[in-house]
Simulated scan of single mutants.
Amino acid sequence: MKAKSLLLQTTLAGAAVLLAASAHATVLTFDLDPDIPNYGDIPGSYGDNVNAASDAVGTYLMGNGYTPNVTTEYRTWQISTDTVAYNNLDFWHDSYGDLSKVAFSVTSSDHFAEITLVPEPGWAIRLNSFDLAGYPGVDHPNSQVRILDGTSNTVLLDYSPVTILGAGGTHSTFTPSLTFAGPISIRFGYNDWNVGIDNINFDQVTAVPEPETYAMLLAGLGLIGFMARRGKQSV
C-alpha cells in the first residue's frame, strides 16, 4: 500500500506541476521604446505575446512570469453609435494623479476607451488588477468602469459609478481577480479622456487541464490498478 500511495502522490504532484507551470503574468506599464510624445498612438502590438521583460515595442513588469499566448487590442468607442471610432488609444506622460505613462481615449465627449486581452485557444485570462487616475491631478466622480466579455460585450463586472482618484498625487486601484476563458475587455473613460489607465496586471492560465496532464493521471491510475490486481493474485 505504501508503494501505491507514493506512486499516486507522485503522479498527482506531477500533474500539479504542469498546471502551476502554465500560469504566468505580465504588467502593462506603457513604457514604450522609443518614447512617444503626448497624444501619440499606443502601438497596437504593445503587450502582444510577451516572453521577456522587454521587446521591440517597450518594457513590462513581470508578475509570475510571461504571457506569450496573449495579445492586446486597443480601441476608442463612440457611445452614441456603439461602434469603434479608432483602433487605438493615446499616450500621456504625467499628471494623471501620481501615474506616469498612461493610456487614454483618443477623444472625450461621446467616447470611451477599451483594452482587450485576447488569449490563444486553450488559455484563459486572469485579470488581477489595474490603476486609473484623473487628469490634471484631480478626482473624477461618477466615472464608469466595466469589465466585459470581449466577444459578446456582456458585462462581467461593473464598478460604476465610481470616483477615480487623482487629487494630491493619488490613483485608484481595481482588483477584479477575475478569470475568464476568452477575450476580456476593460472599459473606462466614458465621456472623459481625462481618466487614464496604467499597470494592467494579468495572467495567462490554462483554460482546461492540458492533455499531457490527463495522460499522466490515467497512466498513473492504470499502473496503480495493475499493481493492485497483482497484489490480489499473489495472496
Rank of each mutant, 00 (worst) to 15 (best):
Met1Asp: 12
Ala3Glu: 14
Ser5Val: 12
Ser5Thr: 14
Leu6Lys: 14
Leu7Phe: 10
Leu8Arg: 07
Thr10Pro: 11
Leu12Phe: 09
Ala15Val: 13
Ala16Ile: 15
Ala20Asn: 14
Ala23Thr: 09
His24Leu: 11
His24Thr: 11
Ala25Met: 06
Thr26Leu: 07
Val27Ser: 02
Val27Ala: 03
Val27Thr: 09
Thr29Ala: 10
Thr29Met: 09
Asp31Glu: 13
Asp31Lys: 13
Asp35Ala: 15
Asp35Gln: 15
Ile36Gly: 02
Gly40His: 08
Pro43Tyr: 05
Gly44Tyr: 05
Ser45Asp: 14
Gly47Met: 05
Asp48Thr: 10
Asp48Ala: 10
Asn51Trp: 11
Ala52Pro: 04
Ala53Tyr: 12
Ser54Met: 09
Asp55Pro: 07
Asp55Lys: 07
Thr59Lys: 13
Tyr60Thr: 04
Thr67Phe: 02
Pro68Asp: 07
Val70Cys: 08
Thr72Phe: 06
Glu73Trp: 11
Glu73Ala: 15
Trp77Thr: 01
Thr83Gln: 15
Thr83Ile: 10
Thr83Ala: 12
Val84Glu: 05
Tyr86Lys: 04
Asn87Phe: 09
Asn87Cys: 08
Asn87Met: 10
Leu89Ile: 02
Phe91Arg: 05
Gly97Met: 00
Ser100Gly: 15
Val106Trp: 01
Thr107Glu: 10
Ser109Phe: 10
Glu114Met: 07
Ile115Leu: 09
Glu120Thr: 10
Leu127Val: 04
Phe130Trp: 03
Ala133Arg: 00
Gly137Tyr: 05
Asn142His: 08
Ile147Met: 02
Asp149Gln: 03
Ser152Glu: 07
Asn153Gln: 11
Leu157Lys: 08
Pro161Asp: 03
Thr163Val: 01
Leu165Cys: 07
Gly166Leu: 00
Thr170Lys: 06
Ser172Gly: 01
Thr173Ser: 11
Thr175Ala: 12
Phe180Asp: 03
Ala181Cys: 10
Ala181Tyr: 04
Ile184Asn: 01
Ile186Ser: 00
Phe188Gly: 00
Gly189Met: 01
Asp192Phe: 01
Trp193Cys: 06
Asn194Val: 03
Asn194Ile: 02
Asn194His: 11
Asn199Ala: 07
Asn201Tyr: 07
Asn201Lys: 06
Asp203Arg: 02
Gln204Lys: 08
Gln204Asn: 14
Val205Gln: 02
Thr206Leu: 12
Val208Met: 13
Glu210Gln: 13
Thr213Ala: 12
Met216Asp: 08
Leu217Tyr: 03
Leu221Met: 10
Gly225Ala: 14
Gly225Met: 15
Gly225Lys: 15
Lys232Arg: 15
